[in-house]
């Protein structure tokens, strides 16, 4: 049994099935990212684990204890960092961090020590006597983290805590967050719609859509072996190309695996396509080529190739070229269900 576990969890808001039968199992010390487009139910799922929403049906366990029925948020041993940080605006940073400890009636001296320790951990000791309005976004985020960590919770719940930071700060904050989570080893569930964040942070990623978990696996798993066409097209930018093969089968391959034929050796096990390029986008480190596959494709569906700058083959708009995909990089999906089938070749399995 996982440290945090949901069993057949449902949450309906009227007609809307926000969470629709989720079985999630998070191991102790693990960082699991809930990733999905907005409205996929990831936040609702997290709020149910926190105790802020009551499930319509299903079960939630934290550290082996069933909590979904009548354990209030304060008794679940969870700490949450909100997207807005939700700092108490009328309390100074230090008092914000002290608040969870005061609530459990800890002695004043012990509180002061714990606050000092948590503040030291995030390098905000000099900010303790400031009000949230006097802090920058990054500083507020640290105060929120310190408030979450101060009472040693069983589980951290992060609701897009980096999305209010500017892009530059976000990369640093992501790195620090990962470091910090590794160090203290607290089980963490992290909600985001940003796949870069998910790939960079998660020990495992649970990809969600329309209230359901489509796949849960390591970042490499969900990227390399998507369980279905939703995961295949949601993860990766640009997304995986999906082309109709024979009846009832879709073949998928990543744009960065779709390269000019001559890049591969003559012996390499590749599938060759005739690729008519319609548009070329120069992005500095990459070239994105948009076009269609000439003889293979019935529809006029756009296929994308992502050429790294190291491939200097001249490509002109409007021309057709021989392109190829390594067989081991091709994936097959059932056209009707979208679920993954056997790989195109079984060799690399």
């Amino acid at each position: 049994m996982g440290y945090v576990e949901t069993r057949n969890l449902h949450k309906h808001f009227g007609e809307v099935e926000a969470v629709n039968g989720v079985n999630l199992s998070v191991e102790e010390g693990e960082l699991v990212v809930l990733l999905g487009p907005s409205g996929c139910g990831k936040t609702t799922l997290m709020r149910m684990i926190a105790g802020l929403e009551k499930p319509t049906s299903g079960e939630i366990y934290i550290a082996g204890e069933r909590v979904d029925e009548d354990v209030p948020p304060r008794a679940r041993g969870v700490a949450m960092v909100f997207q807005s940080y939700a700092l108490y605006p009328h309390k100074m940073a230090g008092d914000n961090i002290a608040f969870p400890l005061e609530a459990v009636g800890m002695a004043r001296l012990a509180i002061r020590e714990a606050v000092a320790r948590a503040a030291g951990m995030f390098g905000i000791t000099h900010l303790l006597r400031r009000f949230p309005l006097q802090l920058s976004g990054g500083e507020r985020q640290r105060v929120a983290l310190a408030r979450a960590v101060v009472r040693s919770p069983k589980v951290f719940l992060f609701d897009e805590p980096l999305s209010n930071l500017d892009a530059k700060l976000r990369a640093t904050a992501r790195f620090e967050l990962k470091q910090f989570q590794r160090e203290i080893g607290t089980t963490t569930i992290y909600v985001t719609h940003d796949q870069v964040e998910a790939m960079g942070l998660g020990d495992r990623i649970a990809v969600m859509n329309k209230g359901q978990v489509h796949q849960i696996g390591t970042p490499q798993d969900v990227y390399d072996d998507p369980a279905d066409t939703f995961v295949a097209t949601f993860i990766g930018s640009p997304p995986m190309n999906l082309i109709e093969h024979d009846a009832g089968t879709l073949v998928g391959f990543r744009p960065e695996n779709f390269l000019p034929r001559q890049i591969f050796g003559a012996q390499d096990d590749v599938v060759t396509y005739r690729f008519r390029v319609r548009r070329v986008e120069y992005l500095g480190s990459d070239r994105f080529l948009y076009g269609v596959l000439e003889e293979r494709q019935r529809s006029d569906q756009t296929v994308i190739a992502d050429l790294p700058v190291t491939i200097t083959t001249p490509i002109a708009e409007g021309e057709a070229y021989e392109f190829a995909v390594p067989c081991r990089a091709q994936r097959q999906f059932d056209a009707r269900t979208g679920k993954t089938g056997k790989r195109k070749t079984d060799g690399a399995a």
């Binding site: 926190a50 105790g51 948020p73 304060r74 949450m80 909100f82 939700a86 700092l87 408030r147």
Partner: peptide
């Protein structure tokens, strides 16, 4: 903001606190 109320709930504040 609703977040602030919810943060207080999770931080373990009783009704009166």
């Amino acid at each position: 903001p609703q977040d602030i109320n919810e943060a207080a709930l999770i931080d373990g504040a009783s009704f009166w606190r």
